[in-house]
Amino acid sequence: MKMLKRILLIWSAIGMISSSVLAAETKLALVIPSTIDDLAWSQAMYQGIKDAQTELGADKLTFEVSERLWNAVDAGAAIRQYALKGFNIIIAHGAQYQSLLADIAPDFPKTSFAYGTGFNTPEPNIFAYDPHAQEGAYLLGMLAGLTTRSGIIGLVGPIKAGDAIKYNKGFEQGVMSVNSKAKVRVAYTGSFGDLVAAGEIARTHIKAGADVLTGTSQQTVGAINVVAEKEGLVWLSSDMDQKSIAPKTVLAAQVYNFKNVILNIVKNRASGVYGGKHLELSFANGGLILNFNDAIIGIAPKNAREKILAAKEKIIDGSLKIELN
């Protein structure tokens, strides 16, 4: 009888602990280089967290955001403060924060840190998330190659690093897969947030004959408006669907769905894993979404959508590989 009582006591204690773990509120902090309404990289993550919160319940996941922390020193101070305040998950949304997290994470072993784009997890409590930008870029490249009439495609890049390299490589391969005569011209602003410079590069591309343009990072909103000034030109967007700015210009978009990254981190923490994992966003796991703008998709050749969707299936089943080297 005593034995039975003991087992029941232990069982109920375990039950109480586990239910308290599940019922406990997860506090998440997001540190971003720009703002939550940049209609690009930072807003995509903000949206992902909100979607995850909707799925888990507002009482299960709460979050705070610190914006405009592109400066590593300021970002480091914010990250440390969040950790000291007892936040469970701290997301530093940018590849530039990797070394910063590697420095801070050992001081807070029970806090999960995450950054991306990246794959290195230098500490056991750091997650790295990695959107396969090249996958959507390949499909958008196909659309560009099929749609261009001038045979010149302009790419507005931020800084030649991380996501931008993957996007550009995937995009160029996509163009070449359907239109080997087309030229993809790449120009960088040297910044992630200089939308005036992005607009000027778009203008230069257009003067040089480009009729299909694309680009990455938050600065692209400046380029889209320049493209929208002239009829018959189209823009292909990445990170988020940017057609709200120019509904008659944005032909298709690759959208990062960060919700799964957040859910994954929360789930891992519940099972006692605080980091050390490389979380990928791909078409196969729903981390990437391809949107067509149905209002203007008629600009592209009739069979373009079918060809692109067929290629997407090949990317998902692994029969189509995109080279990054």
Binding site: S34, T35, D38, E67, R68, S191, G193, D194, L195, V196, A197, G199, Q218, V221, G222, N225, V226, E229, I245
Partner: peptide, 13 residues
């Protein structure tokens, strides 16, 4: 120039 407003539009100009 941009027909838009976004954070840090001036970018050091």
């Amino acid at each position: 120039q941009t027909h838009i407003y976004a954070d840090n539009i001036t970018a050091g100009r």
